[in-house]
């Protein structure tokens, strides 16, 4: 069986369709395509053995293929509020850096995430965060505040969490109980753009921490694989439900590690998605839960594992 690895292709618009066709022909999937003026960025999964071939084809087009550990994941960047105190720098810089590594990031600005005594998390915020593969909490400068408010901000969250804050990693490890999946110290409330080498190094550390956490989850998934690989289901939905192509969202269908978010209204399209045939006689409804998302009126698809469905598409 070929292993698909997440990669980013960066190149010009000129003849980029050849690369897209090549990835398709090799049995890979493109989960996100960005066209920015003259440049194209493709976040994709390609067979490990064929990366060199893509590099070779891309050479005359001055395209480059780099490994992007976070392709196919949707990450929530949780900021205590959307006030000027926390935005734009810390939260946006983190989100942007994770995006460079291939992730689809969503910013979750809490309504009342500030203040150590008054901080709280409402049910909508909790459910929205839980719809992601991982949550990065961008916390502040004081050890005391993180210790007091973090238990409240994580209440009910069952996705892996990576915490950033100004105290060093060891302090974060000590004050957060029960432990979370990742810690990055030395990144607190910062009022300027991350541009110094040590600040960028912190962001690299964050990407490592996030990919390490997600890799652990991937290993778990490998033991009981999903009934269908999410990018594959994504390709099927994009091909068969033509309304998807009319959406103006940057990612009309967002790939997650264990499912998809389809940005069509649930009431109108849920049945169409459920009855969509994935393979002979197997419909989406058979191998996945199609549920309403707490994010606007979108559809959230959670793919069931093989052990539950006894089907592998």
């Amino acid at each position: 069986m070929t292993t698909l690895v997440p990669v980013t292709y960066k190149g010009g618009v000129y003849r980029h369709d050849e690369i897209m066709d090549l990835i398709d022909d090799l049995g890979g999937y493109i989960v996100q395509k960005h066209v920015m003026a003259q440049d194209v960025v493709l976040q994709s999964f390609v067979p490990r053995d064929d990366i060199d071939l893509i590099r070779e084809v891309a050479k005359p087009l001055a395209g480059e293929v780099t490994e992007a550990p976070l392709v196919g994941t949707e990450i929530a960047v949780v900021s205590p509020s959307l006030e000027i105190h926390h935005l734009p720098h810390t939260a946006c810089d983190i989100a942007e850096y994770l995006r460079c590594a291939g992730a689809k990031t969503n910013m979750v600005g809490l309504a009342r995430g500030f203040g150590k005594r008054i901080a709280n998390l409402n049910d909508e915020e909790r459910d929205v965060i839980n719809e992601h593969d991982l949550a990065v909490y961008a916390l502040g400068n004081f050890e005391e505040c993180i210790r007091q408010k973090f238990p409240v901000l994580r209440r009910g969250i069952h996705v892996p969490i990576v915490v950033t804050g100004a105290p060093d990693r060891e302090t974060l490890l000590r004050i957060i109980d029960p432990p979370v999946e990742g810690y990055v110290g030395g990144v607190g409330r910062i009022m300027h753009r991350f541009k110094r080498p040590e600040e960028l190094a912190k962001l690299d550390e964050l990407v490592d921490e996030v990919s390490r956490t997600l890799d652990a989850r991937r290993d778990d998934l490998a033991k009981d694989p999903l009934s269908v690989f999410p990018p594959r289901l994504m390709a099927i939905i994009e091909e068969r439900i033509h309304e998807v192509s009319m959406l103006t969202h940057p990612t009309p269908v967002t790939a997650q590690m264990e499912g998809l978010r389809v940005k069509l209204p649930y009431d109108l399209y849920a049945d169409a998605v459920r009855s969509l045939e994935v393979a002979d006689g197997v419909t989406v409804g058979d191998i996945a839960d199609v549920t309403p998302s707490r994010m606007r009126n979108y559809i959230l698809i959670r793919i069931k594992p093989f052990s539950e469905t006894r089907t592998l598409v």
């Binding site: 400068n141 004081f142 050890e143 005391e144 100004a166 105290p167 060093d168 302090t171 607190g188 409330r189 910062i190 009022m191």
Partner: peptide, 10 residues
């Protein structure tokens, strides 16, 4: 809090 002090200075 020394870490916080440095952060607030910045």
């Amino acid at each position: 809090d020394e870490v916080g002090r440095e952060a607030y200075e910045r």
